[in-house]
Amino acid sequence: METNVTTRDGVALLKLSGRFDFNAHREFREALERMVALPATTSFTVDLADVSYLDSSALGMLLLLRDKAKQANKLVTLAGVKGSVRQVLDIANFSKMFTIT
């Protein structure tokens, strides 16, 4: 999996691509730490448009992000959700915990 963190208008954007699974844990954690450390951000957006697969460990990593964001008093949005990624998030009831676009 590839990660890219950028900011724009107070939003920290984490763009993911490839397979989001346990093997991506270290990359995701490093990207998460970069996002949390960014000054003057009001929210986090995770762009999943280029994610081809995610598993239960990816769900756990997203929950970790949500917890870190909550501690920093920031909102999290999951963007670009489609196909099998949307199905997994729907089955896990993530729409109750995240804003999904």
Rank of each mutant, 00 (worst) to 15 (best):
A69S: 15
V88S: 06
S95L: 01
A12K: 06
A40H: 12
F28A: 10
V81A: 09
L16S: 08
N73Q: 13
T3F: 02
E33M: 00
S57R: 11
N4C: 12
Y53T: 11
K68T: 04
N23H: 12
A31E: 01
K82C: 09
V81N: 04
V85E: 14
S56T: 10
K68P: 01
T77Y: 03
R34K: 15
L48E: 04
T6Y: 02
E27L: 08
G80W: 13
V51F: 04
G18L: 07
L65M: 15
P39S: 01
L62R: 09
Q71R: 10
L13H: 15
T7M: 08
I100T: 08
M35C: 13
S84M: 06
D67P: 00
V5A: 12
G18S: 05
S56C: 15
S57Y: 07
E33I: 04
L62W: 07
L59N: 02
F20E: 08
A79D: 14
A40D: 13
G60R: 03
R19D: 13
R34F: 00
F28Q: 03
L16P: 03
G60E: 09
D90C: 02
M35W: 02
V81H: 03
Y53I: 05
F98N: 00
F98Y: 00
T99F: 00
L78H: 07
A69G: 11
G18K: 04
P39M: 01
A58R: 02
G60S: 07
N4R: 15
G83E: 14
D67Q: 09
M97R: 02
N4P: 04
M1T: 13
M35Q: 07
A58T: 04
E2L: 04
A69Y: 10
V85H: 08
N93L: 02
M97D: 00
F22H: 11
E33S: 05
A92R: 05
L62M: 07
F22I: 12
M97L: 15
T7G: 11
F94H: 01
R19Q: 11
G83F: 05
A40E: 15
T42S: 11
V36T: 09
T77N: 10
M35T: 10
E2A: 07
F98M: 00
L59Q: 00
A24L: 07
G18Y: 04
L48N: 08
A40F: 06
S43M: 11
L89P: 06
E33V: 02
R19E: 15
R8E: 14
A40T: 07
T41V: 14
S84P: 07
L13M: 11
E2T: 06
L75R: 14
K96E: 05
N4K: 15
L38A: 09
V51P: 03
D50N: 13
K96V: 01
V88R: 01
F94M: 11
V36M: 13
L89S: 14
D50E: 11
V76R: 05
E2V: 00
L78E: 10
F98C: 02
L32W: 01
S52Y: 00
K96I: 01
V46Q: 05
Y53V: 10
H25A: 14
V46M: 03
K74L: 06
N23K: 12
S84T: 11
A92W: 02
D47R: 15
D67K: 14
T41G: 04
E33R: 05
L16E: 06
L48G: 09
D21W: 10
S57N: 11
A72L: 08
D50A: 15
V85F: 11
